[in-house]
C-alpha cells in the first residue's frame, strides 16, 4: 500500500496478492489464535514468506497478534471486507420512526451502523435524504456519520475521503477531532449545509439497552438555519424516540 506521493502500484505481483488473501482466508478458517507455523503448514508456503505476509497484514491492521504474540486473529479493519446485507428493521421499530414522522414536519431517517458502515435502513419517503452511498462514503459530512465516528477507538480508519460536497462540508481532520468528543458525550450530532447548502440534520444515538453499544442513529433533517439553534422540545422528542428504538434494534 502506498500513500499519496508514493510510487503507483504496479499490480504485477499476482502471487503476492494471492498469498495475502490465502493467509487471510486461513486465519478465518482456522479461527483466532492460529500461529504462523500452522498457517505456513496449512498453505504449504515457505515460512519466511508466511512471516513476511503476516507482518504486512498486521502492519496494515487487517490482522492482529493476540497478547501471546504467537496467535493471530482478524483485526477490526477486516470487518470492512465482509459487508453484510442489513435486514429491514422490524415493524415495531418502523412504527416508532413513523410515529415521529407524524409529529414533526422534518424529514426523519433511521440509519443502522454495522461493521463500521452507515446503512440507511428507513429513509423518509416524503423528504428523500442525500445519496445513501455518499452518506456511507463520507461519514464525517453527516450528523448520522458523526455519531458512528464518535464511537470509534480510531475514527481515522473510517474516514478515507475528505472531499467537499458543498462549500460548508467539513474537510479538516483536526476540526473533526475537536468536534467528536462532544458528540460521544451527548449522543447527539448536528451538521448544517455540508451535504446540501440549505439543509442540515440533527441525529441522536440509538444504543442497545444491554451493553450501551451504538447500534443505530435517528436523524431529523430540515432547514439549515434551525439546526444551528434547535428547539429543545424537538431535541427531547428526538431523543425520546431514539431511546424507544434501543430495545427494538439492539
Amino acid at each position: 500500500m502506498t500513500g499519496p506521493g508514493g510510487p503507483p502500484i504496479s499490480g504485477r505481483q499476482p502471487r503476492a496478492v494471492r498469498t495475502a488473501l490465502a493467509v487471510l482466508e486461513e486465519v478465518v478458517a482456522a479461527g483466532p489464535g492460529v500461529t504462523a507455523k500452522e498457517i505456513s503448514a496449512a498453505l504449504r508456503l515457505p515460512p519466511a514468506t508466511t512471516y513476511r505476509v503476516l507482518n504486512l497484514l498486521v502492519g496494515d491492521e487487517y490482522l492482529v497478534r493476540l497478547p501471546d504474540l504467537r496467535g493471530f486473529a482478524l483485526g477490526r479493519r477486516a470487518a470492512r471486507l465482509s459487508p453484510v446485507a442489513v435486514p429491514r428493521p422490524s415493524t415495531a421499530a418502523r412504527a416508532v420512526v413513523e410515529h415521529l414522522r407524524g409529529m414533526v414536519r422534518w424529514g426523519v431517517h433511521l440509519a443502522v451502523f454495522d461493521g463500521g458502515r452507515l446503512h440507511l435502513a428507513d429513509p423518509d419517503p416524503d423528504h428523500p435524504p442525500s445519496d445513501p452511498d455518499l452518506l456511507a462514503r463520507l461519514p464525517q459530512a453527516s450528523a448520522l456519520g458523526r455519531l458512528l465516528l464518535a464511537e470509534q477507538a480510531d475514527w481515522r480508519a473510517l474516514v478515507r475521503d475528505l472531499r467537499p460536497v458543498t462549500g460548508a462540508t467539513l474537510t479538516d481532520p483536526d476540526e473533526l477531532a475537536e468536534l467528536l468528543p462532544a458528540v460521544a458525550r451527548d449522543g447527539l450530532a448536528a451538521q448544517t449545509g455540508g451535504l446540501r447548502p440549505d439543509r442540515g440534520c440533527l441525529a441522536a444515538a440509538v444504543r442497545s439497552p444491554a451493553d450501551r453499544r451504538l447500534v443505530a442513529g435517528l436523524a431529523l433533517s430540515g432547514p439549515a438555519g434551525r439546526i444551528t439553534d434547535p428547539d429543545p422540545d424537538l431535541v427531547a422528542l428526538l431523543r425520546d424516540h431514539a431511546d424507544r428504538l434501543g430495545p427494538l434494534l439492539g
Partner: peptide, 13 residues
C-alpha cells in the same frame, strides 16, 4: 500496547 478486545473483529463494539 497489546491487542485489546476492541481491536479484534467480532470482539469490537
Amino acid at each position: 500496547d497489546e491487542t485489546v478486545a476492541s481491536d479484534v473483529w467480532d470482539r469490537a463494539a
